[in-house]
Design a binder for these strands. Structure first.
Length: 159
DNA sequence: GCCAACGTTGGC
DNA sequence: GCCAACGTTGGC
């Protein structure tokens, strides 16, 4: 299958790209996703080798801050069975897990963040899922052309 | 801090 | 299966 592209949102105060950069192997589990549409994407669609845009939400600057690669495809999110986790889901059956995650590895942190503001001003990115009204989905598809444009913007040297 | 837009839950 | 109530997300 052709390489696919995705955008993962995270609030940087919960988990930022710098946190990922400090992980052993710069790899992490993308756990804690508790939305069925996002779950289906994690479980069924995302494949090893796919590209991921790492997006910081809520805290300014809201922006795509780097690029990751999927290193392990959908498997059950262990935090759903951990009563001490804030992602604990007592209704999930271990024999039929409700929630899934993937593992991603940092490829590069951008030289500069590609802000939401800038994305909204870039014609080639007008149709991005991120720009749609009420697009709260935290795991969303990105097209190959959007991917290229964002990467190019991120590689541009800071002013 | 506000609130619109969604998603989920649970009573009926 | 409907839908009101509630909770959350996330930009402003």
């Amino acid at each position: 299958m052709a390489k696919q592209y995705w955008l993962f949102k995270s609030e940087p105060e919960a988990y930022s790209i710098d946190d990922l950069a400090k992980e052993p192997g710069q790899t992490c589990h993308w756990d804690g996703i508790r939305n069925y549409q996002a779950r289906n994407t994690l479980r069924d669609k995302i494949k090893v080798g796919d590209g991921v845009l790492f997006y910081h939400s809520v805290k300014k600057p809201m922006a795509v801050v780097g690029v990751c690669e999927v290193v392990r495809e959908g498997y059950p999110d262990h935090t759903q069975f951990d009563a001490n986790s804030k992602y604990y889901d007592p209704k999930s059956d271990p024999d039929d897990p409700r929630w899934y995650m993937v593992d991603i590895k940092l490829v590069e942190k951008f030289l500069r963040p590609v802000t939401l503001e800038e994305i909204k001003e870039t014609e080639a990115l007008f149709d991005m899922f991120l720009c749609r009204k009420g697009a709260r989905l935290s795991v969303q598809p990105v097209t190959a052309s959007e991917w290229k444009v964002i990467r190019r913007l991120g590689k541009r040297k800071p002013e």
